[in-house]
Design a protein around this nucleic acid. Structure first.
Lengths: 185, 185
DNA sequence: CAGAAAGCTGTCCGATCGGTCAGTACCGTT
DNA sequence: AACGGTACTGACCGATCGGACAGCTTTCTG
C-alpha cells in the first residue's frame, strides 16, 4: 500500500469514527507517523482529502443509478442486491456520508452525495408515496447505514462474517421495501 | 421560555445539525444574541451544556427500562409503543446520541447514553440472538433515529403530522422486531 | 433607598486549527 | 559527479477554539 493510500485509509477511519471537523490533520499525521506538513503535501487541503476518500464510492453509486436508468426497469430485488453490495463494499464511507452529510453539505463532495441519495429515493418513487412508504425508505437506509457503522458499540454484532451480514441485510431490506409500490418492481 | 431554556434549545438544534465538536460556543451565543461569556455564565462549560440537554431524555429512557425490569415482563408491542413515544418526545436528542455517541464516549453523559442503549438491546436479548436478529435490531433503531434526524434532507418527509409518523414507525418497528423471539414477547 | 444577587460583557489567555513556505534528505537518471 | 524530482520537515501564520476573570448594568429584596 502506497503512502498515499495509507493516508487515505487512516483518514477514512478517523473521519468515520470521530467526524470530519473533529479530526485534525495533526492526528492523521500522528497516526501515519509523519508530520502534518507531509499530509498536506499528499493532499493539497483537508477538503481534498475528504473528496478523494468519498468520491470512489459516489462514482460506484452513480454508475449503479445510471445503469438502472438505461435499463428502463429493473427487478426490485436485483436493485436491492446491487445496492447492498455497494454499501458493503464501501461500508466505511457509508456512515461518513449518512451521519455527516447534512453537516457538511457546503463541501462539494458531500453535496454530491446528497444529490445521489436523492436520486436513489426517486428511483423508488417514494418521495411522492405515502407517509408509511417514505418512512420505510428512511428506516431501511438509515438503519443499514447505522448498522454498518456503530452497532458494535452496543454489542449488537461482533465479528460477523460478511456473507452472513449480506444475506441478513438483503432479507431485511427486501421486507422493508417490497411493500412499497415501485417502478423498479 | 427562560433564557436558560432558550440557550438549551438553540444549542440542541446546533449540536444535532452540525455536531458537538463543530458547534462553537461563539455560534450559540450569536444565535441567542448574546456574548460567548454569557453562555458560559449560564453553563459552566460546553460539556455541562451538552449534559443538561441530553440527560432529561436519558432519564426518561432509564425510567422506561426500570419499569420494564420491575414488571418482569411486558408485551412486546407495548414496549415498542412506549419506546417510539419516547423517541418522538426527544426526537432532537436521538440523532445527537446516535450519530455522535461513539465519538463522544469519553464525555460522561454520552457514555451514559451508550450504557442505556446497551440495556435496551439486552431487553430484547438480541445480543445473543442470530445474526439476522441482531441486524434487525440495529436496522430498526438506527433507521428510526436516522429518519427522525435528517430524512428531510433527501426529501423523504416534509411536514408530516406527528401522529402519522408515530403510527407508521410503530408498524415498521413491529414488523422488524416481532419476528425476533424475545422475553418481552 | 441601599445593597445583594443575577445577568451580561469585553478582554485576555494558552491551545489548537488548517495552511504556507523555505529548506533538506534521498532517490534514480544521465 | 551533477542533476531534477519526490518525499518530507520545522517554523511560522492568522484564525478560532473553550474558558477565566474583573467589572458593568439590571433586577430583586429587605
Amino acid at each position: 500500500m502506497s503512502r498515499h493510500e495509507e493516508l487515505r485509509a487512516i483518514a477514512l477511519a478517523e473521519f468515520a469514527a470521530s467526524g470530519f471537523a473533529a479530526t485534525s490533520l495533526q492526528r492523521i499525521a500522528d497516526l501515519a507517523g509523519m508530520s502534518k506538513a507531509s499530509v498536506l503535501y499528499h493532499f493539497e487541503s483537508k477538503e481534498r482529502l475528504l473528496a478523494e476518500i468519498v468520491n470512489p464510492a459516489l462514482d460506484d453509486l452513480d454508475a449503479l443509478i445510471v445503469s438502472v436508468d438505461e435499463a428502463g426497469a429493473l427487478r426490485h430485488r436485483d436493485f436491492v442486491e446491487r445496492f447492498v453490495d455497494l454499501l458493503l463494499l464501501h461500508r466505511q464511507v457509508v456512515p461518513l456520508v449518512i451521519n455527516q452529510g447534512a453537516t457538511l453539505d457546503d463541501v462539494p463532495v458531500m453535496h454530491r452525495a446528497t444529490l445521489l441519495m436523492r436520486r436513489v429515493s426517486e428511483l423508488f418513487r417514494l418521495a411522492s408515496g405515502s407517509t408509511l412508504e417514505k418512512l420505510r425508505f428512511g428506516v431501511a437506509f438509515g438503519g443499514v447505514a447505522y448498522t454498518l457503522a456503530a452497532a458494535e458499540r452496543l454489542g449488537l454484532n461482533g465479528e460477523i462474517p460478511i456473507d452472513e451480514v449480506r444475506s441478513a441485510l438483503l432479507e431485511i431490506l427486501h421486507d422493508l421495501l417490497v411493500p412499497a409500490e415501485s417502478p423498479i418492481a
